[in-house]
């Protein structure tokens, strides 16, 4: 690699808003890891994603078509961007776009763009709808759940799983129901919004812990950082959080990576019960928005991912600092109408 030419990395998820995408945090960690010899290309879906306008974070942004426009549309837009920017690595950060990027992986590789993503099997196995079976298969504790299509099935769920029930939408939202009436109300509300199936899950009470994990695709967990939320927003997103030192969590993450040979970053959402048993509640197949905390506590996961994507073999990190705290804050960035017009009219800024 020519050492004078900067490393060009494309990153999505620039929506650092109240329910933030991870892009800006990923970029911050990459800049920490690679210093000044790096050029960041932002890929945005909407015109008001803050990252677009933060010019010391993102060097240049291009709009890309929404995932629903399909793989061909995405592919042709990336070809256009690649011709201008000569991308070396692409790090997608949204759940909804991953399907397309995973499918596009071989095409991108032919173009000379590396990615470091889970396989389609890994991606689908950890889907909310398949998670319980996934846990059964790999000996991981996952709360029991059922996918249902009829409101009558709630009775069976209540019988088998007991109250309270967690009634979840196919993509988002979860409502805790303590009575059949509440469960039915939740069923109708969520099915109207997200369609079927509705997932009914056993309720697990305890402490919520998130773990940022980076797998090398061969069964090794390169980095594991557990974090407990200290304060959450009304949307349940972490506002502040602290790194923890806990061997059971590390072991759980290692088991997960070894069993699945997970490739890339992911976030395990864990509920630890009063007796100390950790349940995996959800697996997000990408870095979390708080990923910069991994860099701050000594294991820069985005930089490590970038190195592996570009062909390096890494040894697992062994230490990190517990007790590191992140506190998210809001900042009113100022820009001019001309920048907004430029990105929305021409698709580039």
């Amino acid at each position: 690699m020519d050492s004078t030419k900067p490393l060009v990395i494309a990153v999505t998820g620039l929506n650092a808003i109240d329910s933030p995408g991870p892009g800006v945090a990923v970029i911050r960690a990459l800049r920490d890891g690679f210093g000044s010899n790096i050029r960041i290309i932002g890929l945005s879906y909407e015109t008001l994603e803050p990252g677009i306008y933060l010019h010391d974070v993102v060097d240049k942004t291009y709009q890309i078509p929404y995932p629903s426009a399909g793989i061909d549309a995405l592919s042709s837009r990336l070809q256009y961007i690649h011709a201008k920017e000569n991308l070396q690595l692409l790090i997608p950060n949204f759940d909804a776009e991953l399907y397309n990027f995973i499918k596009l992986g071989p095409t991108l590789k032919n173009m000379g763009i590396s990615t470091f993503l889970p396989t389609m099997e890994q991606f689908e196995a950890r889907d909310k709808i398949n998670l319980y079976q996934f846990g059964q298969k790999h000996g991981l504790s996952v709360p029991e759940d059922r996918a249902i299509y009829s409101v009558h099935d709630l009775y069976t769920c209540a019988e088998k799983l007991g109250y309270p029930l967690v009634v979840k939408g196919k993509f988002y939202d979860a409502i805790v129901a303590y009575t059949m009436e509440q469960a039915q109300k939740a069923f109708h509300k969520l099915s109207a919004k997200w369609g079927f199936p509705i997932i009914v899950q056993q309720f697990i009470s305890g402490t919520e812990i998130n773990v940022a994990v980076l797998g090398d695709g061969n069964g090794n967990a390169i980095s594991i950082i557990p974090m407990r939320k200290l304060y959450i927003t009304d949307k349940g997103k972490a506002w502040a959080g602290i790194t923890l030192e806990d061997d059971t969590l590390i072991e759980l993450a290692k088991t997960f990576v070894a069993a699945t040979k997970w490739k890339g970053g992911c976030e395990l959402e864990i509920m630890r019960t009063a007796t100390g048993q950790p349940f995996i509640m959800e697996i997000n197949p990408r870095f979390p928005a708080w990923i910069y905390l991994t860099a701050a506590s000594g294991q820069n996961q985005p930089a490590a991912l970038a190195k592996m994507a570009l062909g390096e073999t890494l040894e697992p990190f062994t230490t990190y600092t517990s007790g590191k705290i992140f506190i998210r804050y809001a900042w009113d960035h100022i820009t001019d109408i001309s920048e907004f017009q430029q990105i929305s009219g021409l698709g580039e800024l």
Partner: peptide, 17 residues
Amino acid sequence: TSEAGFIFNPSTGDSFS
């Protein structure tokens, strides 16, 4: 209005292409 086809209405804050 700009030559690139941008329109800005400063009294409402709306932009158009």
